[in-house]
């Protein structure tokens, strides 16, 4: 069977992927105050990549994102754990989070919390795992 052309879906997918990426990052960042968070953000991000897999083929995507996602996951977990360990430096219980308000030049009054760092770890772990799984199965013939 001849390869059917995928022009419509590919062009829409490109736009969609951008939107999803943006949204995923938004979900992730605003997770502390609105629905979302590291896990959902990460998985949304992963689903964007899945969309890429679906519309393009696995080699193209892999060429463009040349990462070992298992390592991403590992680094994610490491970040999360090390964030927790950081609290040991201040002699507070493991995983104690801190937050504060800072005045940054562009954003104005901003709240920064170490929980966000923890969430980054979560997100990375989720992204890494989801993509590892998908790519492993996708690879297998």
């Amino acid at each position: 069977m001849k390869e059917p052309n995928d022009i419509i879906i590919r062009s829409v997918a490109k736009v969609a992927v951008v939107i999803i990426f943006t949204f995923a990052i938004n979900l992730f960042i605003s997770g502390h105050h609105y629905p979302g968070g590291g896990f959902i953000g990460g998985l949304a991000f992963a689903s964007a990549v899945i969309l890429l897999f679906l519309t393009f083929d696995i080699e193209t995507v892999r060429k463009n994102i040349p990462l070992d996602f298992k390592m991403v996951a590992a680094i994610g977990v490491l970040i999360a754990v090390l964030t927790g360990l950081g609290s040991l430096l201040f002699d507070v219980p493991f995983l104690s989070q801190a937050f504060g308000y800072f005045y940054l030049p562009i954003f104005g009054k901003t709240e920064l919390a170490t929980a966000v760092l923890f969430d980054i770890g979560v997100a990375l772990a989720v992204i890494g795992t989801a993509l590892t799984i998908i790519m492993s199965i996708g690879d297998d013939r």
Partner: peptide, 24 residues
């Protein structure tokens, strides 16, 4: 409070993750 308590749990995690990074 005794932060030592957490170490038996996280030491393997940290080392394990490092090992994943240095897989080969």
């Amino acid at each position: 409070m005794n932060n030592i308590v957490i170490f038996p749990i996280i030491i393997p995690v940290i080392f394990g993750m490092i090992m994943i990074i240095f897989r080969k």
